[in-house]
């Protein structure tokens, strides 16, 4: 029965992997400012990886943050949807091929949605989260059948 309600309110969890903070500011904007208000889509930010349904990853995965990212991703239960926020986790962006960059993100985890931009517009984040919710609904359906 819980799964029926869980579908309607996925919880968001964000991981900063050495981002310049631009995308994190935009994520905070999307969540906190009533103008964009991601909670209209039924989403809520959570502080614990164990409660996460949709994972938003920012930053180009620096050498220092790599082990933390792997540990954090291990704690997030399946089914989950991973969204890469900004060009850094998608392809490395302007930091691509740098000596201290271990990215892109899809080396470590199966990414579902990419939202590119530098930084991204709050409206684009809403777009990406809406797509992620669609994927998450399908994933949870398959998960409960299995």
């Amino acid at each position: 029965m819980l799964s029926r309600y869980a579908v309607k309110s996925p919880w968001l969890f964000r991981i900063n992997t050495g981002s310049c903070n631009g995308c994190d500011v935009e994520l905070a904007t999307t969540a906190l400012i009533p103008r964009y208000d991601v909670e209209r889509l039924g989403c809520k930010y959570t502080g614990s990886p164990k409660h996460a349904d949709i994972v938003l990853v920012t930053g180009p995965i620096t050498a220092r943050s790599e082990s933390y990212l792997i540990r954090m991703l291990d704690e997030i239960p399946e089914p989950r949807v991973v969204v890469a926020i900004g060009i850094c986790p998608i392809s490395g962006g302007v930091y691509r091929d740098s000596y201290s960059i271990r990215g892109p993100l899809d080396k470590f985890v199966e990414v579902d949605v990419n939202v590119s931009g530098c930084p991204i517009r709050p409206q684009s984040i809403l777009d990406g989260v809406a797509q992620a919710i669609g994927i998450w609904k399908e994933k949870i359906k398959i998960f409960h059948k299995a």
């Binding site: 899809d106 199966e110 949605v113 409206q123 684009s124």
Partner: peptide, 11 residues
């Protein structure tokens, strides 16, 4: 145009 959200298959 700001519609930059794409699925992984279109990366």
């Amino acid at each position: 145009d700001f519609h930059t959200a794409r699925a992984q298959s279109e990366k």
